[in-house]
């Protein structure tokens, strides 16, 4: 019967709760702002900051920069093939060129307009503004031609090159690692599992594997700090990564992956649930940022 709650206590709780709800949380926007800063100052006084966490962020900056170098190189090879009119080679180089992007997408996409320029899907932007990887993808796989793609190829190579330049000056904060690692998995859950990302080439498995790798790279940098606060969580997350990789492993083909069309609905669901099983504990990694 009822609740023996002191009225004042309940009232206080509700007020506090409402106030709590209204406060800004650590979001992408905040992370984006922070990356614009060059000082690397922590924006919230409540965020735990330690030399170890700063070191983790620095190490991840190196990872992001390395991936950008790789992306620049592979994208250039891809766009060269498109410009040379070599359809088969262009199709071969398409997915590998995207892998580094997919590993660091959560960070790279925060810079300027690079995300829509490089990675917009058909319908994401007005057609006359649509360029980047997916515009060329459609021509290669649906049109079966490189004709008319030179301008998109040149622009893509330029954008990636200039992104590489900008990313070198990026100052990451520990929060970016926490958010980024989960966000990459959310990318998989929201857009990749359905096959909508690579709707013409069906190379989604390249993206998915790369997203998971990028997520793991961020987690690994944070791992010592997480282990200190919650060793069980590290175990759960590691088990989660293992589960996803094992699920993916069966779809390997040569140096790459089978077409995503070969996955039955039940296969996609199984993969999706493995990602959920990983992302749930990983979403608890934010506790390393909490003081005390």
């Amino acid at each position: 019967m009822g609740h023996p709650v002191p009225t004042i206590a309940a009232l206080l709780c509700l007020l506090i709760l409402l106030a709590g709800c209204g406060r800004p949380v650590v979001t992408n926007e905040r992370a984006a702002e922070s990356t614009d800063e060059t000082t690397g100052e922590t924006t919230s006084p409540n965020v735990e900051s330690s030399p170890e966490l700063e070191k983790a962020a620095d190490a991840y900056e190196v990872y992001v920069a390395d991936q950008m170098v790789l992306m620049d190189k592979h994208t250039k090879q891809f766009t060269d093939a498109v410009i040379a009119g070599d359809l088969e080679r262009a199709k071969e180089l398409y997915a590998p060129a995207r892998e580094p992007w997919e590993r660091i997408e959560s960070i790279a996409a925060q810079l300027g307009d690079y995300d829509p320029e490089i990675d917009a899907r058909e319908g994401d932007v007005p057609d006359d503004e649509w360029g980047g990887f997916h515009r060329i993808e459609k021509s290669l796989w649906v049109g079966g031609t490189t004709n008319g793609q030179e301008k998109y190829a040149r622009k893509l190579a330029e954008d990636v090159d200039s992104l590489r330049g900008e990313i070198g000056g990026l100052e990451l904060e520990p929060a970016d690692l926490v958010i980024g690692s989960v966000e990459l998995l959310n990318e998989v859950s929201a857009g990749k599992i359905t096959g909508e990302e690579e709707r013409y080439s069906h190379t989604d498995l390249y993206d998915i594997q790369a997203n998971v790798e990028g997520s793991e790279a961020a987690f690994e940098e944070l791992e010592p700090e997480i282990a200190e606060k919650d060793p069980m969580l590290v175990e759960d997350v590691e088990k989660g990564f293992e589960g996803v990789y094992k699920e993916l492993e069966q779809y390997r083909q040569g140096d790459g992956w089978v077409s995503y069309e070969e996955l039955a609905e039940s296969d996609r669901r199984a993969l999706s649930q493995k990602v959920d099983a990983l992302a749930e504990p990983l979403s608890q990694a934010g506790q390393v940022l909490e003081k005390g």
Binding site: G2, H3, P4, V5, P6, A9, A10, L11, L12, C13, L14, I16, L17, A19, G20, R23, S44, P45, N46
Partner: peptide, 26 residues
Amino acid sequence: DGKISRRELLRLAGAGGAGLTLGAGG
């Protein structure tokens, strides 16, 4: 300022456990 942790919530409410009961009672 700052976040409201559950621990603070309980402390402010001044009654252990009462802070949990934001459902019907609150």
